[in-house]
Nucleic acid binder design. Structure first.
Length: 308
DNA sequence: TAAGATAAGAGGGACAT
DNA sequence: ATGTCAGTCTTATCTTA
């Protein structure tokens, strides 16, 4: 009972990162985040702790939450709390609320007000999150990533990063950042296309977010792109595996750092094709990977030295 | 027709001024 | 703050097998 709330949180969690499986997890008390010291992954549930007091309630809250209908979602512009405590004291399905639930909602409401979300900001968020849904749908990314993107956007908004820039470009950048963070293979190009933002602008906004929010991204693993590219250009499983081993070698010899991962992957696939006697044109692979043939050739030059 | 070569230009990071 | 530099990637065009 004497345990401070902070420690309570930490003890409830696994000591290992859910993504990379390593750790240890450390707490960034400045931002109230729990993150992996190995890969920088921010453990999602702790996002809520930008409003630290909530953490005190976790245990009971969690049980209560499940009884009170819609979960509070970061991807809803007001976290789903728009409906203030109504006069009739009933929830959405008409049930009477228990006094304890009423108190809780009132408290959440209070924090909502205190969170200095002024009306223009609300409007901004609403617009951004509408856009977020639309783009996320096109990109086929899951709800958890949508939540994460919404979280990043909120942070950007709080830091006034959106001021002077378009909402679309910033929410798009948030989405891209989310993909990178979770190692979901979506390229700048993919995301730009889905949103209608120019690649250049997206890249700029993304870098801004990265810098200002101090986000650390895992190094993108070119192997992740193998299946995407090989299936698009109809390359066999066997050849794809060969390409993976080539990429592995490339990684070990450090020629892959600083190179466009799609280009590298495309080149590895091309070389694998020639080694396996499979016919595939540079053109086809380049198209599938979203890079030019020239890039493939350039990567091939350094990769071929490894293979031979 | 596929692949290689070459050249020009865009955009950004690093570093110095 | 601004400019330069090295390096990457893209587009375009020409040549080669």
């Amino acid at each position: 009972m004497m345990t401070p709330n902070k420690r309570l949180i930490l003890e409830e969690r696994s000591k290992y990162c859910p993504r990379c499986g390593k750790g240890p997890l450390i707490e960034d008390s400045m931002r109230g985040e729990l993150l992996c010291s190995n890969c920088g992954y921010i453990i999602k549930e702790n996002e809520i702790s930008t409003r630290p007091e909530w953490r005190a309630f976790t245990k009971e809250e969690r049980e209560e939450k499940s009884r009170v209908g819609m979960p509070s979602s970061l991807a809803i512009h007001d976290r789903g709390l728009a409906t203030k405590l109504g006069a009739n004291r009933r929830d959405a399905s008409g049930r009477r609320l228990k006094p304890s639930e009423r108190r809780r909602i009132k408290r959440m409401d209070m924090w909502d007000r205190r969170s200095q979300m002024q009306v223009p900001l609300h409007r901004n968020l609403l617009q951004a999150l509408t856009e977020l849904d639309r783009i996320a749908d096109k990109l086929n990314i899951g709800d958890d990533l949508v939540e994460k993107a919404a979280y990043i956007y909120r942070k950007a908004l709080k830091k006034d990063l959106v001021k002077g820039r378009s909402i679309s470009s910033m929410i798009t950048a948030s989405i891209y950042a989310t993909c990178r963070e979770s190692s979901t293979p979506r390229t700048l190009k993919d995301v730009a296309k889905a949103s209608g933002i120019k690649r250049k602008d997206l890249a700029r906004s993304y870098r801004l977010i990265l810098r200002e929010l101090d986000l650390k991204m895992p190094v993108v693993d070119s192997v992740k792109y193998i299946s995407k590219i090989s299936s698009k250009s109809g390359i066999s499983e066997k050849t794809a595996r060969r390409a993976i081993s080539i990429l592995q070698k490339a990684k070990d010899s450090h020629i892959s750092t600083g190179k466009n991962p799609q280009g590298l992957t495309a080149a590895a696939l091309y070389i694998a094709c020639t080694l396996e006697g499979e016919t595939a044109t540079q053109k086809a692979i380049a198209a599938a990977a979203g890079v030019t043939e020239v890039t493939i050739r350039n990567r091939c030059k350094s990769l071929q030295r490894l293979v031979s």
